[in-house]
Simulated assay, not measured.
Amino acid sequence: MKFFRKIRQKLFTESKFSKYLIYAIGEIILVVIGILIALTINNYNQNQLIKAKEQKYLKGLKEEFQTSKLKLTELMDVNKNNYEGAKQIIVSITKNDPPTEIEFSQLIYKTFSFDISFNPNNSLLSEMINSGSLKDVNNNVLRRRLTNWLSTLEDISKQESELGNQREKVLDLLRSDEYSLRTILDLTDIYKQVDLPKGENHISNLDLLNSKEFENNVLMFILTSYATQKAHYQPLMDEIDSIISLIDTEIKNEG
């Protein structure tokens, strides 16, 4: 800078104003170019940092959704087993071919013991949404899918709640004085797992097969389970696959 200042002073003292003016303008242009280059470099560095941050988020999101997919796969298997077991009960009622007490106890336990609740991994996605970092995801379609994910889970939760209500209606019949949960626990050996003494006098639950209320509740359970599987879980699985595919595309594009 001292070098340029000396040149300016020399030109000015020698009354070479036109040359001084041209030189001054040239110097201003050089300064502007320097600033623009610096801004370009700074913007490039900022963009690289944003891209690196996005890639870190994308890889983390992929792990989360892959874990959620595994959880949903297991849950769908449980739900399918539940309504398949309920269908066996209805078949026994329809064909008037009752199972033995042990078979019925095992069928009841297998069908109605496991509650259904999808618990996906959302810690990173929630952090991104709360911190405003979701904007760092460049793909508009992927960003929209991620934004809608949590609201989709709310719909799933409502369906699972309805399914739980239908399950409870079946189990409520077993809580009455006419029937016995003790019989089911004893004949399926569950009493050993929960460290309970085995009962001696078992009340038969087979009369449930003659109960229209029981049949109606089981049928409602089947319908709700099936709807949960086909109208909620399967589309959710498709959405997970779609999100993972979009994430993979963004990771490959950057690579």
Rank of each mutant, 00 (worst) to 15 (best):
G60P: 08
L58N: 02
D238Q: 10
I89V: 00
E160F: 01
I7Y: 01
Q159P: 03
I33Y: 00
P235T: 00
G132Q: 10
E162Q: 05
I184W: 00
S157I: 02
L187I: 03
G34F: 05
D195L: 06
W149R: 01
E178M: 15
N79K: 02
K169Y: 15
N216C: 09
I251W: 06
K59H: 05
N139M: 05
L174N: 05
N140F: 14
D248I: 01
S133L: 07
S105M: 08
I190V: 12
T67W: 09
N81R: 13
L107P: 05
Q159V: 04
N201S: 11
D136M: 07
D186A: 08
K135N: 14
S157M: 01
I50R: 15
F65D: 02
F221W: 08
F112L: 09
Q234D: 03
D77F: 03
N140K: 08
S180H: 04
T73N: 06
D189M: 09
I93D: 15
I50Y: 11
W149I: 03
T13K: 11
V32P: 15
F104S: 07
E127K: 14
N210D: 15
E162F: 00
K56A: 12
T224E: 07
M237E: 10
R167W: 07
Q55F: 01
R144H: 15
T152C: 14
P235N: 13
N121A: 09
K169V: 13
S123A: 15
L174K: 04
R8I: 09
I240N: 08
M128E: 01
D241S: 05
E154C: 02
E27F: 06
E213K: 13
S180G: 05
K19Y: 15
I203F: 00
K212E: 15
E162W: 05
E213V: 13
F17K: 07
N82E: 06
H232W: 09
I50M: 10
D238A: 06
I222T: 07
I156Q: 14
Q46F: 11
D186T: 08
S126R: 12
S151R: 11
G199Y: 04
P120L: 04
L134S: 06
K135F: 10
L153E: 06
I247Y: 11
E154N: 13
I89P: 03
N122W: 07
K71Q: 01
N140S: 13
N119R: 09
F221A: 00
I89D: 01
L72W: 02
V170L: 13
L134V: 00
